[in-house]
Design a protein around this nucleic acid. Structure first.
Ligand code: ZN
Ligand code: ZN
Ligand code: ZN
Ligand code: ZN
Lengths: 132, 132
DNA sequence: AAGTGAATGTAATAACATCACCCATCAAAA
DNA sequence: TTTTGATGGGTGATGTTATTACATTCACTT
């Protein structure tokens, strides 16, 4: 397991910025917030994000081209994870469902599909945004 | 239900090109294939795709920024649909699973999340690509 | 004919992501 | 000690995906 203290300078900067942001952020948003810290090139951010995703500290939200910190960074291995993304406030909630995982793995088995990863993102309006 | 014969010229061109392609294609790939037909601007393709997606004739694959024709265009309403995307050959297979849908709708209910759509894309290697 | 809304044509720009190249550091191998 | 390889970093250029803005055309209605 990669610990936070093993992160390189740029990885730490990006991770801390994303954590502070508290919601999904694009690579360019992160870059904008890190100019003062000395970052000036998208590549610096993408490289850090690649590693953070590899370490499981950050997840990529494919349907909004954004990144978000893992809600359960202490789990060495998650199974398939899902996100509920609010189209009103931009927040995302990470969750997982063993039954969904089982069904997707089952479909893969049945169709001789060698599953490497799954993207499960539900879009809509979160509780906070629907009470209003 | 929108019938194929209701499509406008550009919509037909894009739909036919995508159908002929027989696999997911990016908007720019489609545009390249339609230069001879007179299309020259990405916007023309994106506008057509927007409508085709709205009509349910085409789906967007969020994790690969590509579009694919619906496998079941005669279903007036699909429920939540999923795709198995082969990272080797680029093919995508559309499927759906009522149990997965039920679980995602259940999670949404439980968390007061008003679900508008779901992105379910599994990535890996298809049967044809694993026998090799 | 004039008004309307949908579709289209087009240039420009925005947003997202990668490539190419070079340099620095550090540790293992020779 | 010197070499080598792996990893991280800085930077400019480029590639890819998507949208905005605005003018025009077309089919249809009044
Ligand atoms: Zn996580
Ligand atoms: Zn919300
Ligand atoms: Zn379909
Ligand atoms: Zn394949």
């Amino acid at each position: 397991m990669t610990q936070l203290q093993d992160l390189t300078r740029n990885q730490s900067l990006v991770f801390e910025r994303l954590t502070a942001h508290g919601a999904p952020a694009s690579a360019y948003d992160l870059l904008d917030g890190l100019r003062d810290a000395g970052l000036r090139n998208p590549n610096q951010v993408y490289r850090a994000l690649d590693k953070l995703v590899e370490y499981g500290l950050v997840h990529r939200l494919e349907s909004i081209n954004a990144f978000v910190t893992c809600a359960h960074p202490h789990d060495h291995k998650h199974g398939l994870i899902a996100f509920a993304i609010c189209e009103t406030c931009g927040q995302a909630e990470e969750f997982s469902d063993d039954f969904v995982e089982e069904r997707l793995r089952g479909w893969s088995m049945d169709h001789a599909f060698r599953l490497s990863r799954a993207i499960i993102e539900i879009r809509g309006a979160c509780k906070a945004c629907t009470v209003a």
